[in-house]
Amino acid sequence: MSELLKVPTMAEFMAQGKQPEVLFWVGCAGSFDDRAKKITKAFVKLLNKSNVEFAVLGTEESCTGDPAKRAGNEFLFQMQAVTNIEVMNAYEVKKIVTACPHCFNTIKNEYPELGGKYEVMHHTQFLKTLLDEGRLTIEGGQFKGKRITFHDPCYLGRANNVYEAPRDLIRKLEAELIEMKNCRRNGLCCGAGGAQMFKEPEKGNKDVNVERTEQALDVKPQIIAAGCPFCNTMMTDGVKAKEKESDVAVMDIAELIANAQDL
């Protein structure tokens, strides 16, 4: 990596008596998972490029509790939630952006009742706003004319009715956006949600991610675009299972935009 990423923390802002424009909630995958860390960095590059004053919680961030809640452990979820809310309220956080639809859904919908009321955006929505405000320009670059299909993350799409922001961004790349048989509100899950990411699937005749990858491969894309670190992993594994990794790449929207401008 050539240039250094600027990643200030909330604590640093506080020390200077300042408030950032937005808190970037990195999430567990974005912090620790090797593949997802690349997405995190791509997004930070875009934030830096657009001169967005953002901050992260860094070591003060903790799991939102989403996988615990979906697994049925409401205690653990609420412990996590209350702890995170205390931290964020102490920093007087108003606005949050995250690249993980699970964090997005949990903080946006389930935290308010527990005392955490923030404006929460998915990174595709945030990038779309930057674009609309003229703070970010998107060029097609290497993706001009490429066949790209978008896999709707359940927790972004059906769960929160966000379907267009990621698609608008892909179109801006002057790419050919192609839709799978199941898309938008009919999108098929990648198989990771509801804490499935952390366990072996039950007995069946196929893995969900393979089924979804087959749907994607049916439309012959060069790139499968994702908007969730877990979907990304599942689809990447699916492409590998179908031995298509030399023909089809799985990339996050933030990576597409950052790569298009050689960031």
Binding site: C154, R158, N186, L188, C189, G191, G194, Q196
Partner: peptide, 10 residues
Amino acid sequence: ACTSCNACVE
């Protein structure tokens, strides 16, 4: 076995 995907609800 549920992925909490909400496809059934939809």
